[in-house]
Design a protein around this nucleic acid. Structure first.
Lengths: 199, 199, 199, 199
DNA sequence: AATGAATGAGGCTTCATTCAT
DNA sequence: CATGAATGAAGCCTCATTCAT
């Protein structure tokens, strides 16, 4: 796995508050539809107050995106217990991935849908990080296929679909009766097991 | 199904060109990140040229969103052959839904991700239309459950997941080797059949 | 008196309707605050329909201003009966001037307050015409002074004040109980007689 | 007299400079004919520089109108010495009113002729203030009538005419030899005395 | 750090006007 | 004549950002 500079995220308290406000704002109005005033207003600050912490609005988006994908990755990775059976690994990974997207749906929307607003370099950095998470799903699927626990027509297609399923949770969550991330996680773990034809 | 006024979409050729250009632009930069100049530039027109056809940028987004969800719905509805077996109905509906999202991924992104930029009234109109498409998936799932062809832990959750799976295609398509909408449709039909536990 | 080209005003019926609509619009929103759409809307026409009749919005204002000052002048001039006594001349002139401003207050506002929007040449033409009306007041005042009927400290100042009094009617008319141009005319004739100290 | 919030006018130096520039611009081209660029250009600022001080062009007009009518009223009110004789009161009030309009003719034009560009609420506020000034003239006229010092055919009509006479000064001043506000004030005081038939 | 004022660029939209129909 | 579409210019205003304080 690529070494990524975790220290790129400012650890100051003020910076964290700004990121949180920006996530709220971006998730509702999109990056392009959100102004620095919108963000500042949520903090009762002036727009200029952001600049000692982030060099630009795009820089702020990058910090959010980077941190978000990093944490998402770490969370999913921690759920992948290499010593468990393929089905259990899959259940754990998918359940954790889906419920993270549900719990952090605002943050997830920003880091999934606003990537095109990043500069080229920032985009590349974040996308590389995002691929790591997909790689976890892939390795679990492949492991099950290798052991014969999973029977799938197309391992890569299944990887794509399962990842997609999890990612899209942030778009619709919460909806109707599905307001508990854990419920979503459990449901998705079940569906994933069915998809891979786990005995 | 609610009757919705298809004639809300201007049928003029110029208006259609403007919608097409706006879809391209919005799908790349988002509604908020796209300027009327961006759209006009794609048509070699002045930004003012849009205004005889659409009263505002938001009005243009509404026309796109309304038309898009209408056509998507009609397309999926046409794939739902009531006389077929539940599995075949499911395969046809999911395959058509997924491949439509792939084929029209730019349009689909706009109509799925930019809804929050609509006015309240426009939002409501479009969301009502969008629900009709989910309703088709729901009715197919329920039909299979009723006949015993499908065995699912949670019909509503399955409906949600299958719909989500299809919708999210527009986000990642095309990716890697998955560049043919038909291939995606076939794959997703298979996965859907597995999800519902179709014998 | 300068010869002025009365034929500058188009005699066509359509042109007259346009002038009338423009007077209504200009008198409410000012020349700068009125759009060609505003004018056209009052006639249920398209803005382009004005152009066969007037070369530009400014041209339309000129036609209105020219015609207005011409008619105002002719009206006041007709009220100046050279054979009457100075007081009667004054009463007739002031009464007619004031009541014309009241009756045609919308038109009068336009021709009095929007002159600065005219081109230099048009401005000069109209202002020359306007001076003719003041000249009538002046000649009446002077006549009374010459015969000893009027006793004034400053004939030119009185001319200025009486003209100003009449012109300003268009600004406030109608107000309160003063809604009848004839009443205003009679009142102002009385006041004018007092101002000149007519025995 | 109604208490009106004088503090509605920003006291900042920059705001005052902007008002002054706007008065110059509005008085020449009218509110509708003046652009924010015109105003900014007079101050060697960018058009955007106005916005920290006034929320809109209309807001700026309101500030000007409110302040202008407030100051005009205070000035005229200060000239009304309740202990003087009716004629002296009248002379003082009319002379002061007329000369204020002459001295501040640009400001006066804006506050008298651009009221229709105000929002409904702003219009009402300013018009209420304007009526206070007319009320002063009315009370002086009525006082003279009550004491028998003035003999007028119609006290309200005389009030209207005297007010109108003073207001209209801003339209024509300066003209010809009348370039000194004091001269105009003295002249108008004389004429007013004649109008009310003061002995 | 944080702010209010300022700005150059540019946002959406409207303007007066033209032109093909 | 009249229109709807089109446009270049410009309208008001907001934007992200800077800077003196």
């Amino acid at each position: 796995m690529t070494e990524l500079p975790a220290q790129m995220i400012s650890t100051s308290k003020a910076a964290a508050r700004i990121r949180a406000a920006a996530i709220d704002a971006f998730s509702v109005g999109g990056y392009g539809g959100t102004t620095t005033r919108d963000i500042a207003a949520r903090l009762d600050m002036s727009p200029a107050a952001m600049y000692p912490h982030y060099r630009s609005k795009e820089d702020l988006l990058f910090a959010i995106s980077f941190e978000g994908h990093l944490v998402a990755h770490e969370t999913v990775a921690a759920a992948d217990r290499a010593d468990a059976s393929p089905v259990d690994r899959l259940r754990s990974v998918i359940s954790t991935f889906a419920s993270w997207q549900a719990t952090h749906h605002a943050q997830a929307r920003v880091i999934q849908y606003e990537l095109t607003a990043l500069t080229r370099d920032h985009y590349r950095t974040v996308v590389a990080l995002r691929r790591e998470t997909t790689a976890i799903v892939r390795s679990v699927v492949n492991a099950g296929v290798d052991t014969g626990d999973f029977i799938v027509p197309d391992a890569e297609g299944v990887t794509l679909a399962l990842t997609s399923l999890c990612v899209d949770v942030c778009r619709w969550f919460p909806t109707g009766d599905y307001t508990d991330p854990q419920v979503v996680g459990d449901l998705y773990a079940d569906l994933a097991a069915r998809v891979v034809g786990a005995r």
